[in-house]
Design a binder for these strands. Structure first.
Lengths: 215, 215
DNA sequence: CCATGGTCAAGAACACTGTTCTCGAAACGT
DNA sequence: ACGTTTCGAGAACAGTGTTCTTGACCATGG
């Protein structure tokens, strides 16, 4: 039943955006609004559930796409992840906006969201880590000490094997991935770029170069 | 009077986010809600006015910061623009979210917003254009034909003087600027990067390198 | 077989919201 | 001093999230 509620809520999300009406989804279920409170303690709780689902769906799409590619073809894996993220975002723009748009103020992301939220970058880190030994060297990325310390801490927290400069480039790529996607999904590329898919690929290939993935 | 309304609406925006209550701002003005309709035909119209103001404030901050730097110091101008955008975003996170967060569905950006919205990238283009003749060459940015055509069109529309590859890199930088900023303002860097200012500078310097700005 | 307990949804109620309309009171120009 | 215009109040309507009470159903246990 919670599943059904989330399903129709997702449908409403696609048209109404973040201002989702409990009474409207209740009507679609031939149910009175207060009945929803058996399953979700509040509207925010429903939205949070949708957010978690969205993170997990996105991560699943990216993971599946990557697993379909030969493990030693690093660039293909890289592109597969990026393209899967884009495909999911374009197919589910409202849910994408929910998780990568502006958060409602006060709203603190529950702890349940941080693990699925980090899946994508972990995929990218994994690809680069698999390439250790055959990565191109990184030119000109002098890191200031505080920044280097942050990167070191991130690496140690997960027993990573990358150098600070390398993780830095993966973060650059990760940032850029969602930067391009925000622009495309939120319409900032309208009347500007027609060749969207090629534009996106071009950016992500440049990021692969920056991260030092071998050709 | 419209100014006062927008002023208190901006204050509410900071705490309530995009779900802004007309009745609440009316209360703050010791006014009844319906009186607001003398000045704005709807809530959306008020929000649109705030959006336009936000774009213009952001553009003004960036422009002013850049104009305070010697014109031949391209990297300083570049960094001044980027830092001014960041400073404004951090000082006005709600308004930033309004213009660079997820747009409400249906809501079509009025034509009044496109001109101020493009100010920032035009500043960046201007800086690079001023450097023509002393820019570093761009390595490895093979452009597919459709993408090259898009870039060509953008250049011609404004009688620009850049090559497609060069504009491409400015677009990369522009995308990245707001990519990092979204992550920082929307809290995605929490528990990840402490040295925020250095992180940001580091990214934008890398983008300056990519765009070929001379040292 | 009846009683008990639990699950579910309905329905009314409260305090909000955006929006529209009518009306009256000031303010202004002539 | 008389129109006319400008402004805001107030009531009304439809819709919202949320809470609480009530009642129907259904299973299990004595």
């Amino acid at each position: 039943m919670s599943q059904e509620i989330k399903a129709v809520a997702r449908r409403h999300l696609a048209t109404d955006g973040a201002n989702l009406s409990l009474r409207a989804v209740a009507r679609d279920l031939d149910i009175v609004a207060s009945a929803l409170y058996r399953y979700f303690p509040s509207r925010d709780a429903l939205l949070t559930a949708l957010i978690i689902d969205a993170y997990e769906a996105l991560a699943a799409a990216a993971t599946e796409a990557e697993s379909a590619v030969p493990r030693d073809d690093l660039r293909a894996r890289w592109l597969a992840v990026c393209r899967a993220v884009r495909a999911w975002a374009l197919a589910n723009p409202a849910e994408y906006g929910l998780i990568y748009g502006a958060p409602v103020p006060d709203y603190a992301a529950p702890q349940d969201t941080v693990e699925p939220a980090s899946k994508v970058i972990l995929l990218l880190v994994g690809i680069v880590t698999d390439g250790l030994g055959r990565l191109n060297s990184i030119k000109a990325s002098p890191l200031t000490m505080p920044l280097r310390a942050d990167l070191r801490r991130l690496i140690d927290e997960r027993q990573g094997e990358l150098l600070e400069e390398r993780l830095d480039r993966v973060l650059v790529a990760w940032t850029h991935l969602f930067g391009v996607l925000n622009f495309e999904v939120f319409g900032r590329l309208d009347d500007m770029i027609e060749a969207r898919a090629e534009y996106f690929d071009h950016h992500m290939i440049l990021m692969a170069d920056l991260a030092g993935l071998p050709k």
